[in-house]
Design a binder for these strands. Structure first.
Lengths: 257, 257
DNA sequence: CCGGCGAAGATTGTTTACAATATAGTTTTT
DNA sequence: AAAAACTATATTGTAAACAATCTTCGCCGG
């Protein structure tokens, strides 16, 4: 992979995850149709969440092709997907960069997210089935263990699954998807919150309290907890942002426009 | 630019603080980047909204290429966009069909939409500027005239613009986009509501009352109107759906609940 | 010294050809 | 005659080549 341009190196056609021909009717929710571009998009999301790729970093199609052993078509599609999700930004003829959210945008996203999460908890049918409570408790334990181990990747995913399971308890499919979409918009800033161990600790305690509220069918407590749970990560980002750009006002002005 | 060096370079690329190039960032809102695929997607949306293409109708890439005088790449991208918006559905290796929403899905979408629209009206700053009120009134007149003329295409677009302008008054960009996305999800069923002239008449009256509530800064009235405004179109669709499939009762029962 | 000019390189955007897959219709077998 | 297997065709998915665009950097004249 010396110089990347003179001749385009041929694509090695291995490692293509092909969707199995059997059971295309998604028998269960777990095994979803995942096309190649979805896999790439998810992997890039992961990189961004964990801070392996920073805001303003450039994403080059050819690099991603080599990394995922595929052709540019799939990578391209993945970038379009991520753009629609708001995780990256594409500039015509120039490529894609990891999006850098302004504090204003972050506040707006979290305001809408809070509204929808509260709605989900409001319509959630009580009492919650014992089997669902058990599954949530299991996810919470996994989350807690990952925090103790300092395994940020597992922290991220177990946290994600906990919330998906929680809001999945409300029966409104459209609402569930909307909540997830908004959560994804903030993937790019999650690494800032993860940098603070005390924030992770607080998240763990919130989860435990949420479980208790679910068990006892205390809806108001649950809603208050969800509201509180959303605060720290946005505040951590805004603090970090101001620490980065707060001193040089003109730079902040340019970026914030 | 960083040369792709002989040794595989680490994932982090050299990103220097890039001097922002001279304002190529949206010179004006009006002239937006609209790629070919966007044009195709919008045109297909229009067909679906006006009932020129029915639910379950098959969309063949090659046909669309001839219709829009382009290659399959653009058409393909447009179909992916429409799939993400929830207007069509793509089945692997089989193609795309206009999505057929069940009454349950419709009710769920409208419930979320109502929640978000009410939120927008709640945070909307009063009083509304005179210039904004004038623009809204102008859009309302256009809508009204289109109804009288029986021009359903203009009815659709002027109605769309009225609502975009109305909710655009709230300053939360993310919220505005979320509302628009949900509205798009129901494009496929709009033709059912448009079939009832009395529904269009009611919509016109709603708009007039909304304008009055905006002028007098009566927030509660405005919210109640918005709630009422959302009801007829979903009910029209559900009635039409049951008329289509009502004969086989067990099917309707399964889908409705 | 330095500021426009232009060629070369790097990256994205477009087009075409080819391969994989599903559906329907036909033939073969029992 | 019914069911299974096969072939033909239509359609989508993949890959590579080609074209356009932007950036960088060296060159030359002032």
């Amino acid at each position: 992979m010396a110089v990347r341009s003179a001749k385009r190196e041929p694509v090695t056609r291995n490692l293509r995850t092909r969707t199995p021909r059997t059971a295309r009717e998604e028998p269960t929710v777990s095994v979803r149709k995942q096309s190649v571009s979805d896999v790439i998009a998810r992997s890039l999301e992961e990189d961004i969440v964990l801070g392996r790729r920073h805001p303003r970093e450039h994403l080059v199609e050819q690099d991603l092709c080599e990394r995922f052993n595929t052709h540019r078509g799939d990578v391209r599609l993945a970038l379009f997907e991520l753009e629609k999700k708001g995780i990256i930004r594409r500039i015509p003829n120039r490529g894609a960069i990891v999006r850098d959210l302004t504090p204003k945008e972050v506040r707006e996203i979290y305001a809408v997210r809070e509204e929808l999460e509260v709605m989900a908890l409001r319509i959630l049918p009580f009492p919650v089935a014992k089997s669902d409570l058990d599954k949530l408790a299991e996810l919470q334990r996994k989350h807690s263990a990952a925090i103790d181990a300092g395994d940020l990747l597992t922290v991220f995913y177990s946290n994600l699954h906990f919330h998906q399971m929680l809001f999945g308890l409300c029966s409104n499919r459209c609402l569930i998807e909307a909540i997830e979409l908004l959560a994804q918009k903030t993937y790019g800033i999650r690494s800032y919150a993860n940098a603070f161990p005390e924030a992770l600790d607080q998240a763990r305690r919130d989860h435990i309290e949420m479980l208790e509220a679910l068990r006892t069918s205390r809806r108001d407590d649950l809603i208050a907890l969800a509201r509180r749970h959303l605060k720290p990560s946005q505040e951590a980002y805004i603090r970090a942002y101001e620490r980065r750009f707060g001193d040089s006002k003109q730079v902040a002005a340019i970026l914030a426009k």
